[in-house]
Structures are given as C-alpha cells and as structure tokens.
C-alpha cells in the first residue's frame, strides 16, 4: 500500500513551498474576513469544508479527472473550456487561470512533456489554463497516479486557505494545524468515493463566489483572489 517514492513525490509537490504562486491566492478568505463573515477558527473550518465539499469535490476534482482521461491536447482544451463555462464568477475564472498558468509555467521550465505542448495552446487562447486542468497535466508529467494528483489538488487548496488565514491574522499557527488536520480528514472522506466518469462539474459556494467577485472593489487587498 505505502509507496515511498510516491509519498515523497507528494511531499514535494503538495508542499506549500512548491513555487507555483499559491501563496497569493486566498480563494475568498480575504474577502469573507473583510465582510465580517470569517473571524475565527470555527468560521475558517466551515469555509474550508464548504470549499472542499461544495466546490472542490464536485467541480475541480471532476475537471481534473476529465483532463486526466483526455487523450490529447484537443480533449484537454475541451475540459478547460468546460471549466471556463461552468465558473460564473469572472474573478473566480481569472484566478483559476492565473493559478493554473503559474503551475503550468513551472512545469514547462521543468520540461514536462505534456505541459510544454499544452502551454503553446494556452499562450494562444486566453480562456485556457484553469487550475484543475493544469493539475491533471502536471500530475501526469510528474508521473503521479490519478489518486495522488487528486490528493495534491485537494491538499494544496486546503493549505492555501489555512495559510492565507494565518497571514491575515485570523488564526494562529497552532489553530492552523488543527484546521489542517480537520480538513485532512474531510478530504480523505471525499476521496474515498470515486465520482462517475460522466459526472458534470458543478459547485454551490455562493458566499465564497461573492467574496471573490467583490475583490476588485476593495481598496485594500493583498491576495489575487
């Protein structure tokens, strides 16, 4: 069961220090806090749970799995356009593309075969480069299994949210570890059930979507989303 090689790859690729710009995205944490909707660890745990269950599991994960199965660049691009079409918030779309393109850029420099060929497409089409899709491409370039790629995707979301909350002064470093442990258990639960191959991406996180969408209206803002 325990594959040391893959476990070590996960530690490297799922590390918050992996240089793909993740630290600049709060995915709504900053906005919710600014609007008084997030001020302590309980609030944070609820937001992380929402993110995971109502968005990541039904949306990002589905897109990732579709992109994983895609036979060629055309098929990957079709999943990418589906990500674009199923994300109503412009700021959410933009954030997802910026995060995705940053991750893709790293793997282009690491000479990932799929990443290099897909990057050419992304450069030519401003709608492409969504994070979940790029996570599939780069996961394949990294030689991960689908299970492992899903894990990295869910885990980097969780660490990104908790670390944004720490930097915003909403929780301390110990609270953050407790939130992470809780979220880890939820992620494991979600991953235990494999979705159908023909599942369509969907999400329902209205508060998070509104918080991210309101980003450009706030005068004081440290995060991209």
């Amino acid at each position: 069961m325990f594959d040391r090689g893959e476990a070590l790859a996960l530690l490297q690729l799922g590390d918050s220090a992996f240089p793909a710009g993740g630290f600049a995205f709060s995915w709504g944490i900053e906005g919710l806090a600014a609007d008084g909707l997030l001020s302590d660890r309980d609030d944070l745990d609820r937001v992380i749970a929402d993110h995971l269950a109502q968005r990541w599991a039904s949306m990002d994960r589905i897109l990732l799995r579709r992109a994983w199965r895609a036979a060629d660049s055309d098929a990957i691009a079709a999943v990418d356009r589906l990500a674009e079409a199923t994300t109503p918030s412009a700021e959410m779309r933009e954030g997802s593309r910026r995060a995705g393109r940053a991750l893709l850029g790293v793997w282009v420099k690491l000479a990932g075969r799929l990443s290099v060929s897909y990057r050419a497409r992304v450069s030519a089409d401003p709608r492409l480069g969504h994070l979940a899709v790029v996570q599939a491409i780069t996961g394949r370039d990294a030689g991960l299994s689908l299970d492992a790629a899903e894990l990295v995707s869910g885990w980097t979301l969780i660490t990104g949210l908790a670390s944004a909350a720490v930097r915003l002064g909403l929780i301390g470093h110990i609270d953050s570890q407790q939130s992470l442990a809780r979220a880890r258990a939820l992620l494991a639960d979600l991953l235990a059930d494999a979705p159908d191959d023909d599942a369509m991406p969907s999400s329902f996180t209205p508060f998070i979507d509104i918080a991210v969408s309101r980003g450009p209206l706030r005068a004081v803002r440290m995060f991209t989303t």
Binding site: P19, F23, A24, R98, G105, V106, M222, F223
Partner: peptide
C-alpha cells in the same frame, strides 16, 4: 500589478512564478 499575498519576499525570490507569468 501582481498581488503578493502579504509575501513581498516570496514573490520575487522563492516563488517568482506569478511575476514571471506577468512578464511573459
């Protein structure tokens, strides 16, 4: 403009990816 998520060091040193993307 590139936001730094309260990490002005990181965005130019350990993880300059977002700036590299912006320049590209």
């Amino acid at each position: 403009a590139v936001e730094a998520g309260a990490c002005p060091h990181t965005v130019i040193r350990e993880d300059p990816t977002l700036n590299i993307e912006a320049a590209d």
